[in-house]
């Protein structure tokens, strides 16, 4: 009788613990499942966004590639002419100071042009004189 009295409460508490654990486990499984579904939905959305953007970039590339090729070809033709023109203008500016001022807007060191940044160069070139740092 006394053994029955002692063993019965522990058995009932064990079964209740077990059922409680099963409930916890089921709840966790439900949460895990819902989180997986949410992760799947988010991943599908991100993948869709990236696919869409990649497709748009692909369409933009189809337009840009011929333009870039044209620009490259035009640069190959124009650059030597432009450089020659600039060299001629710089030669011309050597004998014409007033044109040096005009050319100084475009070329950094046009002959005869006023110095574009008179204060910037010395500040970079010459560091501050060695003075003992104050502490």
């Amino acid at each position: 009788m006394s053994e029955q009295n002692l063993s019965t409460p522990s058995a009932t508490s064990g079964t209740s613990d077990l059922s409680e654990l099963k409930e916890h486990c089921a709840e966790l499984q439900r949460q895990t499942h819902s989180l997986r579904v949410a992760l799947l939905v988010v991943a599908i959305c991100v993948a869709g966004f990236l696919a869409l953007e990649g497709r748009r970039n692909g369409q933009a590339l189809q337009l840009l590639r011929p333009q870039a090729a044209q620009v490259t070809e035009a640069s190959k033709v124009q650059d030597p002419i432009a450089n020659k023109f600039l060299a001629q203008l710089m030669d011309f500016a050597k004998g014409h100071q007033d044109f040096g001022a005009v050319l100084g807007k475009y070329v950094q060191r046009a002959p005869g042009a006023p110095a574009p940044t008179p204060t910037a160069a010395p500040a970079v070139a010459k560091p501050a004189p060695a003075a003992p740092p104050k502490k």
Binding site: L61, L64, Q67, A68
Partner: peptide
């Protein structure tokens, strides 16, 4: 990256 390169070239 390619789009940006081409755009910057243009």
């Amino acid at each position: 990256r390619e789009v940006r390169n081409l755009q910057s070239r243009i």
